[in-house]
């Protein structure tokens, strides 16, 4: 079941498109924003609301990188692994993050605080390496800076 707030936000998106199902990506984003990830139940609720099949919703949901079909931690670390960050040493950050959080890429820390995910170019190659936590972008990151950055997220 979608909440009233979710429905309202989805209704707004529906108004902007010629038919309901065209707003499915928006609906997925809205629900994920409220629930952190998209569960099977969320898929069904969205399908129901947009009058399409769950398979149709899931087909779209699983295509995109940033729709999470598994539970994620409270904060999401997106580490840029694209070329400029590669040249500028993102691999050191990768290693440092895995060590600090005791998780591998793609996993969620035991305290459920962080999920660590690889991400394609964040569009700040002139300040590589870069990473993003939730909506905050960090540029020119060095392993030594990580502790201070991570501290901000509880």
């Amino acid at each position: 079941m979608l909440t009233a707030i979710e429905k309202k936000a989805i209704d707004h998106e529906i108004e902007l498109v010629p038919y309901k199902k065209a707003s499915v990506i928006e609906a997925l984003k809205i629900v994920q924003q409220h629930r952190g990830w998209i569960s099977d139940e969320s898929i069904e609720a969205i399908a129901d609301y947009l009058e399409i099949s769950p398979a149709e919703v899931d087909s779209v949901a699983t295509f995109y990188n940033l729709i999470f079909r598994k539970p994620v931690g409270r904060h999401i670390i997106l580490l840029c692994d694209s070329i400029s960050c590669y040249v500028m040493g993102y691999r050191l950050l990768h290693k440092a993050l895995e060590e600090k959080l005791h998780i591998r890429m793609g996993q969620t820390s035991e305290d459920n605080r962080f999920t660590l995910l690889p991400n394609v170019c964040l569009g700040c190659c002139d300040h590589a390496p870069a990473l993003m936590i939730d909506k905050d972008l960090y540029r020119d990151v060095e392993p030594a800076l990580l502790d201070d950055i991570l501290k901000k997220y509880t």
């Binding site: 694209s82 070329i83 400029s84 394609v120 170019c121 569009g123 700040c124 190659c125 002139d126």
Partner: peptide, 11 residues
């Protein structure tokens, strides 16, 4: 959509 690695001009 600027996602081409190495590209940051539209930003």
């Amino acid at each position: 959509d600027e996602m081409e690695p190495g590209t940051f001009k539209d930003r």
